[in-house]
Write a protein that binds this DNA or RNA. Sequence first.
RNA 1: GGUGGCGUAGCCAAGUGGUAAGGCCAGAGUCUGCAAAACUCUUAUUCGUCGGUUCGAUUCCGACCGCCACCUCCA
Length: 472
Amino acid sequence: MKIYNSLSRQLEDFVPLNPEQVSIYSCGPTVYDYIHIGNARTALVTDIIRRYLDYKGYKVKLAQNLTDIDDKIIDRAGLLGVSPSQLAREYGEAFLEDAKKFGTEADVHPKATEHIPEMIALIQTLLDKGAAYVVEGSVYYRVNRFAEYGKLSHRKPEDLLAGARVEIDERKEDPRDFDMWKAVKPGEPSWESPWGRGRPGWHIECSAMAMKHLGTTLDIHVAGEDLQFPHNENEIAQSEMATGKTFARYWVHVAFLQIDGTRMGKSEKNFILLRDALNQYPTEVIRHYLISAQYRHPLDYNLTGLEKSESALRRLSNCLDALKKYEAQVEAEETTTSPLQHAVHTMKSQFTAAMDADFNTAQALGAIFTLVSEVNRSLTAANGIPPTAFAEAYHALIEVCQVLGVYNTDAQHTDGDNVEQRDHLITLLLEIRQDARSRKDWDTSDKIRDRLKQLNVEIQDTRDGATWKIVS
RNA sequence: GGUGGCGUAGCCAAGUGGUAAGGCCAGAGUCUGCAAAACUCUUAUUCGUCGGUUCGAUUCCGACCGCCACCUCCA
């Protein structure tokens, strides 16, 4: 299994530090607004890495943070006339709701404000090592003490200064130095520290929380490509200077989601909220769309793309619906090897090969749909294909679809107690319709079909009689 | 200015030094009372342009054109 590591700019074999448990850290959102679909792409890539590792038999611990104290939160709270902590709490909860609905929850969702002591300790360590200095109650990281600074973003010190559009803060020894602790300003939230009241800088929280929850060295660190510099670079500087150990072994950076060819970003104000998208399309459709391109390639977000995904997924679920009746078939004698069984094995190996190649979800989907075609062909022909082969295909497809999170197995029965009675009523209507059909009473037959369709029950007449399913 | 990336059919998107997965859309047909689903066939002699290396390049190298991103808070 290979992962593209931004650190080396190469595909590298993935070998976990501790084979018993793979650790993953994913940079989460600053909670001053609902998360947008771009944030969701990074969360989704993280989630699929986790699910795939799980599929491969690894135990995984995934931490995704919430930045709940930050300039933006303070500014937004001021505008809305609420306290920063209240604003952060509301959007933090909203983020967790969205993540749950989107299927991208982590094992731990640490919050910055709940890790102030860890951050202070880390800053103190860096001060003790001479890698930081205090100016008027703020603490800065001394970049030139870390010889490897720039190794992630592959920037040389002179490059960093040359085109820098950054305002020079005269109090810094070096323009590249960044704050780990910000001295309190009037009216802003603050915490007690050895250097006076203040609040943490952005970068220090990820270092402190990642190391607290995953240990000094973690396996995989995921973030949007915009965070590579300076955020991730600074995380490395802080953590490795403090511990003397590698902070993260594999750096995964997710390419940007675009709108009309340009980046979707909060500052561009062209973003689409995940929850709005989820109100328009099912989770699976959005997930399918976001993984229809490999994660290191930019992807343009638009409605026609989503409609394509919706159609593609309909093809997939039609196939699975047709296959479902074979679900319980157990393989008795595996003497016969039908072409379908061969196709199932091919799909599995192609799926694994694709995912092993830096999580190539687009290619993995190709393997899945190739099998879908083969299944449909077999279903149409149905000559001498053992039912167990269909069962195998069903289970194989369900399994890989769950790794990608593109098929909702609960879709057909979510309504709870009334489901059984509903099913009986539909069965009754189908019987009446069948009677009408045998009389060639097409008006009645079509009326039942049309009216049920209006109630989201779709009838299909097949060789073996009518089938029905709930559609949304 | 520095760094990185992208350009494959109408649209989206994989991919490989030996002659282009998959999805969507479209057209024709099969099945069907009709519909839906499914199946069959059709849709890139060609992978931005121009050179080079090679027996052979879309895939390697160079130049050029176009687009995007990072270097500043943003996943």
